[in-house]
Design a protein around this nucleic acid. Structure first.
Lengths: 184, 184
DNA sequence: GTGCAATACATCGTTGTCGATGTATCGTCG
DNA sequence: CGACGATACATCGACAACGATGTATTGCAC
């Protein structure tokens, strides 16, 4: 289960948790979710479906094609639902640090039932965003935007800073709500 | 030259343009640049160096190791410099749309000599950020944060919006400066 | 004096990615 | 009626990613 694979599989499991879908429709939904940033090829999606099927996480029933060729309606099995929750509750480190992958986790995090489990995941992201890290260093010291001469590198730091602040403030608001839900 | 490979190769060429380095040092710089978001394994870096060497983009000279094992000092060849500029001037679409890859382009964009060539690349990013795209759709219409119920999906849209606004304003400022440099 | 971390590079095997290509049906436009 | 695009899925081959593992040296701490 390499880098992107985890993300793609998570998206498949997540979408199928909402409703049974066939591959082609799944493909369109994934394209809408991540396609404008990082498109997924058909020849990547179908093998991924097979992997998940082989692992018993989803089942397919062939239906006469509404439009054209026969459709393979895909349904999440009980194990599939359990696996989805496991992956959402305990994402790999790269799922927390890589924005693309993190957004995929967020897109399906509502499938975790416990607000406290959701909060735990958000807290991991918060810890990552809070640690002082840069893209450029002087020795071991992370450089701030003002200390970098190159305007393009300053841009990286400026944008990263704005993103991180916006996300931290959203995380704080959302965690407050989740904690209120747990206490109440 | 698949997905990540392009980004990794660009980083190698970019760092070597500044100064000759050996693989181990290269690895540390790449880790600083992108490692906290998306780490690169040693066993990915060394084959990448070999690919570039084989393509004649860089040359190596073996030196007695300062610390330990013999170092392979890597230098960018003339073709390597030309290739770096080519990749910077004409990035693939995914280099523009994927934030990780885009940041890598930005980190080395100063190696393009012409301010007008730099401006062209920034304009491609601006065009991408300006087109109305979401992560969630109702039919074909992109949904705004306020229209989405799920708090986590709202978070995605909120954060993406803040990033995109911060970056657009930085892009406008920087493009103004670049245009002033071209006119002046 | 020996284990351990850091330096520095390499290879191997498994798995994932993706472009190219193929197959088949249906609707529609001309 | 013939081309074309959308629907719907599949296979193949080349190549990239990466964990595991290996090799070899230096220096430091215990």
């Amino acid at each position: 289960m390499r880098h992107n694979a985890a993300m793609l599989e998570l998206a498949i499991l997540g979408f199928l948790h909402d409703a049974p879908l066939h591959g082609y429709e799944l493909r369109k939904r994934i394209a809408a979710l991540t396609g404008h940033v990082k498109p997924v090829a058909e020849s990547t999606l179908y093998p991924a479906i097979k992997r998940l099927e082989k692992a018993g996480l989803l089942a397919r029933r062939t239906q006469p094609g509404a439009g054209a060729a026969p459709r393979h309606m895909l349904t999440l099995t009980a194990e599939g639902q359990a696996e989805l929750r496991r992956r959402l509750a305990h994402p790999a480190d790269a799922d927390i640090t890589d924005e693309n992958r993190w957004f995929t986790v967020l897109a399906f995090l509502r499938h975790l039932e416990e607000p406290s489990a959701q909060a735990e995941v958000l807290e991991r992201r918060m810890a990552f965003l809070r640690q002082p890290s840069s893209f450029f260093y002087e020795g071991d010291r992370p450089l701030r935007a003002e200390e970098v001469d190159d305007p393009f590198r300053r841009g990286i730091l400026t944008v990263a800073r704005a993103t991180s602040q916006a996300e931290l403030s959203w995380l704080r608001r959302t965690l407050d709500t989740l904690r209120a839900a747990t206490d109440g």
